[in-house]
Design a protein around this nucleic acid. Structure first.
Length: 200
DNA sequence: CGCTCGATATTCT
DNA sequence: GAATATCGAGCGA
């Protein structure tokens, strides 16, 4: 079942937690045919609005972060550190003005060989565990910023999955308000990066 | 293992 | 000019 707007129209932190165990699906044309790349989401982080100093939206809307203020269930893709893309889904309760969930890692499930063509790793645990690795494996770029992830035709969507164990931890890779327990992982997944595991 | 560092777009000061 | 929601290479123990 594809996740609808109603799923994303709830508190950002709640959505981030509920996304653990769901299936991230990317469809693209590869070698002249339709290819499905998919994996189970095992690591997410919630980012808020003015109340969250670590959020890109904390200082208001810019050209880059406008997807965090738009309709929920849209992708927010940004380019950072001069070399990496990161994928978020906009999600917030109706009374909030902005919010998104950073998808930090998946367990590769479908199209594993095709994903590894873009990554060239020997250890499958390094294929898509980490926000930059995930976007490289799934070929997600700024071209996919603002797409409707509740529409299966957009090439990027999330399907509901089976329940998994979920643990809340501090957020990673930030200095402001990092102590908030807004990062969620499936602690039993063998596909967490070593760094991701060390923070669990 | 663990630590340091370079790459370098976007935003903010 | 400085900081950043990252990654991987290179180095030393």
């Amino acid at each position: 079942m594809i996740l609808e707007e109603s799923f994303y129209s709830r508190a950002t932190v709640q959505v981030a937690s509920d996304l653990i165990g769901c299936l991230l699906v990317r469809t693209l044309d590869l070698d002249g045919k339709r290819q499905r790349l998919a994996g189970v989401i095992v690591e997410t982080e919630a980012y808020g609005h003015a109340d969250d100093p670590a959020s890109h939206a904390c200082k208001g809307m810019t050209r880059r972060n406008e997807a965090m203020f738009g309709r929920v269930g849209r992708s927010y893709v940004y380019f950072t550190y001069g070399s990496h893309h990161c994928l978020n889904v906009s999600a917030r309760s109706p009374e909030a003005a902005a919010g998104a969930v950073l998808i930090r890692g998946i367990e590769p499930l479908e199209g594993v060989e095709e994903m590894n063509r873009f990554r060239q790793v020997g250890d499958m645990r390094l294929l898509a565990s980490g926000p930059g690795r995930l976007t490289q494996a799934m070929q997600i770029t700024l071209d996919h910023n603002g797409v409707d992830m509740t529409d299966p035709r957009s090439g990027l969507c999330i399907l509901g999955g089976s329940k998994r164990s979920v643990a809340a931890t501090a957020r990673i890779g930030i200095t402001k308000a990092a102590e908030r327990p807004w990062r969620f992982v499936d602690p039993q997944s063998p596909f967490l990066s070593r760094k991701a595991r060390s923070y669990s």
